[in-house]
């Protein structure tokens, strides 16, 4: 598998901060994976994302040791705008991202900045609008649409740049539960159809673990766990780290002395299936 993200021996220390934000991080992510990054506040998640999209070292100064490669480009040697063609970044609050007077114009904005020809811009905007299912709101102003729709507009704007990697920073935290579930279904669909690599930072894992290939857990600037979600969540010490372990998984840990489950259940239906097997 080719590595789309390769981080080697990476330490970053913000100028003026008492301690490094990341210490000796090694991480490789395969092309086409869905990876979740979890961990308590201040564990270094945001710093890691900034190192992937080039804000570090180009916007934040500090001590930079080691190497970060995105799609075989050394991030420290390429400009943010060059990196942006490979990495699409969707902020937690879409209001920080969408600002034009219509949805359509907003999606076109990034493409205009890339200096693409008019026809190509029109084509890509159209494509992104259909991809996210937002044609009916394309002429509306951002303040006239719901939060779930804003999140879709922000994703459309980023995907119109045709990145290989999509990064979502707590994408569901402002959405009502059903909109959150819809968004996760959409992300999975985009991943499948566009063969994207998706990285999601999230505190709550209940809706996401079942679509993810990898769960990366961070603490104090280090990666403390990095594997298939089921493997990572097997370790009940994660609870003390502050990761939002789904209640089903916590229940399974409570029962560990009483029942032997073949696999770790991630959802209520898997739990019922497993406990029926365990009983036989």
């Amino acid at each position: 598998m080719p590595k789309i993200i390769e981080i080697k021996g990476f330490t970053f220390h913000y100028a003026g901060s008492p301690r490094p934000a990341l210490t000796d991080v090694n991480l490789s992510i395969d092309d086409g994976e869905i990876a979740i990054i979890a961990g308590p506040s201040g564990c270094g998640k945001s710093t890691l994302l900034r190192s992937i999209n080039g804000l570090i070292p180009h916007m934040y100064s500090g001590t930079y040791i080691g190497e970060v490669y995105i799609n075989n480009l050394k991030v420290s040697e390429h400009t943010i705008s060059e990196i942006a063609k490979h990495v699409g970044y969707v902020f937690q609050n879409p209001e920080n991202q969408i600002f034009m007077f219509s949805v359509e114009r907003d999606i076109a904005f990034g493409l205009e900045n890339l200096g693409l020809p008019r026809e190509e811009i029109k084509k890509r905007v159209d494509w992104a609008i259909d991809l996210l299912g937002i044609r009916e709101i394309m002429h509306r102003a951002p303040h006239e649409i719901s939060d779930g729709q804003k999140q879709r507009v922000a994703i459309a704007g980023v995907l119109a740049m045709k990145p290989k990697i999509l990064i979502l920073d707590e994408p569901t935290s402002l959405l009502d539960p059903l909109s959150a579930l819809d968004l996760i279904t959409t992300v999975k669909h985009l991943h499948d159809t566009l063969k994207l690599t998706v990285i999601v930072v999230e505190h709550r894992l209940d809706l996401l673990v079942s679509i993810a290939d990898r769960l990366i857990v961070m603490e104090d600037g280090k990666i403390i766990s990095n594997n298939e979600p089921r493997e990572v969540l097997k370790d009940d010490r994660l609870l003390t780290v502050g990761v939002g372990v789904p209640s089903i998984v916590r229940l399974r840990h409570l029962l560990k002395d009483a029942c032997i489950f073949k696999h770790l259940p991630l959802t209520p239906s898997e739990f019922v299936e497993q406990i029926n097997v365990a009983q036989r």
Partner: peptide, 18 residues
């Protein structure tokens, strides 16, 4: 739940499935 765009807590779904 559907009208209010809510989903069930995992433990409610579990209780129903059991």
């Amino acid at each position: 739940l559907a009208e209010a765009r809510l989903i069930k807590p995992q433990l409610v779904e579990l209780a129903q499935r059991l």
